[in-house]
Simulated assay, not measured.
Amino acid sequence: MSPRARTVVLISGRGSNMSALVEAARSPDFAAEIVLVLSDEPGAPGLAIAREAGVAAEAIDFRAYPGKAAFEAALEARLRAERAEIVCLAGFMRVLSPSFVERWKGRILNIHPSLLPNLRGLNTHERALRQGVAEHGCTVHFVTAELDAGPIIAQARVPVLPGDDAEALAARVLREEHRIYPAALNAVARSLTSANVREARLNPR
């Protein structure tokens, strides 16, 4: 692994968490470098935002491929060409296949807007309000074949306040997402870098 882990961020929309990762990676002390932003949607606003921040950004339009396997093959080829070491999902709306996830085991992260294992899947803020929970939040986790079920890296909690609607609750959670996702990526990148350094010392070429 390089001194700063080469990281690709996958998005489908505005990419607000991507922006938080890019901003954090501006620090020379940050253990990951955002080398590319990829989207499955050519019209994703986050692509322009990434370019404005000085990060390469491209689309791999899922509609251009006959199925998931072909799309993922194109995605995999682009990651390999970029020499990616870590993949971060940031509002990426494609469910990746078990075989793809397995190839990136321990190196693919996701941010989910709930306190996993509670409220897997979509519409978490509305569901939290319907359940009447006192606390809500967000989770950074490793991606596995089972949706929103991988090992947890970091979580942040927010109170559910009287009068909250889904929009207000989502905004409160999003602020925490922007805080913990960069911290989690930094920790994972440092851990992977340290592991590779130890391996290199034990097995010099």
Rank of each mutant, 00 (worst) to 15 (best):
E41R: 15
G43P: 05
A44Q: 08
A44K: 02
P45Y: 12
P45A: 08
L47K: 02
I49T: 14
E52D: 15
A53Q: 15
G54V: 02
A56L: 09
A56E: 15
I60Y: 10
D61C: 03
F62S: 09
R63C: 00
A64I: 00
G67D: 15
G67Q: 08
K68P: 10
A69W: 07
A69G: 08
A69I: 08
E72P: 00
A74Y: 13
A77Q: 14
R78A: 14
R78Q: 14
L79Y: 12
L79R: 06
E82N: 12
A84H: 13
E85S: 12
E85M: 15
I86A: 09
V87D: 09
A90Y: 11
A90Q: 08
G91R: 02
F92P: 03
F92N: 00
R94A: 04
V95Q: 10
V95A: 11
S97L: 08
P98D: 05
V101P: 05
E102D: 13
G106Y: 02
I108W: 08
L109V: 02
L109D: 00
N110V: 03
N110Y: 05
I111M: 06
P113H: 13
L115P: 01
P117K: 11
L119D: 02
L119C: 03
L119S: 00
R120E: 14
G121M: 12
T124E: 08
H125A: 11
E126F: 13
R127E: 15
A128L: 13
L129A: 08
R130T: 10
Q131K: 15
Q131V: 02
G132V: 07
E135Y: 08
E135Q: 12
H136T: 03
H136N: 03
H136G: 01
C138K: 00
T139F: 06
T139I: 07
V140L: 06
F142D: 04
F142G: 01
V143K: 01
T144Q: 11
T144D: 13
A145D: 10
E146H: 03
E146S: 11
A149G: 04
P151E: 15
I153D: 01
I153N: 02
A154E: 06
A154S: 14
A156G: 03
R157D: 00
R157V: 00
V158L: 10
P162A: 15
G163N: 06
G163E: 08
D164I: 02
A166I: 06
A168R: 15
L169E: 02
A171F: 01
V173I: 15
V173L: 09
V173R: 10
V173W: 11
L174N: 05
L174W: 10
E177A: 07
E177I: 06
I180Q: 01
P182L: 04
P182M: 04
A183M: 10
